[in-house]
């Protein structure tokens, strides 16, 4: 499922769909709360730094578990320094600077591709606990 992100209302909508999706693959409250936080952080970053983009989620499975792959895709100005962006309290937007490092702690896998030419593509995997 892919959701266009252009406003704060879209962030709420994406989060709502994310929670439904998480529930549909058997996740419970704590898991779906975490999924919704991940979506929220990624989508807020899109609005704040790239103005618009997309959030996408899909199911991932391995031999023993089910999870959700959450992607954030935008064509914005890209993340200058990915290493710094993953440090606590680093923000170029005057806020807490805990979004990306928080996602790193909450999720099981976080991959960031970001370049001026291609924009930003972030992939986050969260396995059912």
């Amino acid at each position: 499922m892919t959701i266009s992100i252009r406003s704060e209302d879209d962030v709420h909508y994406a989060r709502h769909e994310g929670i439904e999706y998480a529930n549909s693959i058997g996740m419970e409250t704590l898991d779906s709360t975490k999924v919704s936080i991940i979506i929220s952080e990624l989508a807020h970053n899109i609005i704040k730094y790239a103005k618009k983009g997309f959030i996408r989620f899909s199911k991932v499975t391995n031999e023993i578990n089910t999870g959700i792959l959450i992607e954030a895709i935008d064509n914005g100005p890209a993340i200058h320094d990915i290493e710094k962006a993953l440090k606590d309290n680093y923000s170029t937007g005057g806020s807490l600077g805990l979004g990306l490092p928080g996602i790193k702690r909450i999720s099981d896998d976080l991959i960031i591709h970001s370049s001026k030419e291609k924009g930003t593509h972030i992939k986050v995997t969260y396995w059912k606990k």
């Binding site: 704590l30 709360t33 606590d88 807490l96 805990l98 490092p101 928080g102 702690r105 909450i106």
Partner: peptide, 13 residues
């Protein structure tokens, strides 16, 4: 709530 408290901690707030 417990879920909120846990995620606040994990986010590092």
């Amino acid at each position: 709530s417990p879920a909120v408290a846990q995620t606040i901690v994990e986010l590092g707030i």
